[in-house]
Nucleic acid binder design. Sequence first.
DNA 1: TCAATACTCAACCATATGGTTTAGTATAGC
DNA 2: GCTATACTAAACCATATGGTTGAGTATTGA
Lengths: 112, 112
Amino acid sequence: MSDLDATFAALSDGTRRAILARLRDGEMRLSDLAEPFEMSQTAVSKHVRVLSDAGLVAVEKRGRTRHCRLNASAMQAASHWLEDYREIWIASFENLGSYFAGKRNPDSGEQS
Amino acid sequence: MSDLDATFAALSDGTRRAILARLRDGEMRLSDLAEPFEMSQTAVSKHVRVLSDAGLVAVEKRGRTRHCRLNASAMQAASHWLEDYREIWIASFENLGSYFAGKRNPDSGEQS
DNA sequence: TCAATACTCAACCATATGGTTTAGTATAGC
DNA sequence: GCTATACTAAACCATATGGTTGAGTATTGA
């Protein structure tokens, strides 16, 4: 599995995205991280494992607790891949803008 | 499944990302699209279906052919989600930069 | 030392995924 | 109308995924 495969696959689950969102506020123990989710801690632990394997979070063992923090650099690769398509979706919005502009005023293609 | 679930899941397969890459050059018939892949046309058709369900490609039936084109707006939602983490990974790179800079020269934080 | 805490591991289950093959449908063109 | 083309659909298979429970391990703290 390529790195991008793993990254996008890890991001394709809502629970895992919620875990990442929680970690934006800073490092958190696995048990605290799992607290709001309506599933077993084992399940959350598995999700964290997936995120860790994808390089999206770093887990550090400290005594009997595991401390998780974001490792956003893997996201950058995913973001970079998407970036290559940015001009295409911008173009499609411009076309849409021209379309609506044309309905109002055939000379104008501008948008706010 | 949320839209983001579907989008990221669709992007997590290398074949599907390759399909999207091919479509960057413009619209293509399904059979032409399938040609370089070492799998059955049925398999490619299924991948296109996944991309279509995720809103990443638009498929238009014209006679007996299906014409596929990029619909990059769904990518924008994914990109936007990742964007929220940009400041975090930038911060982590800055820290890394400072770290290496500190090894060379404690006054400089610049990199090539 | 002993109990509680914070996990991991293993086994299991249901469903999803990525592929195949075979058969069927709709259209094009002779 | 008949045949080739370009698909889609259905059935099947192996493996992956997301969840569970129950047992095991390591660490803390009284």
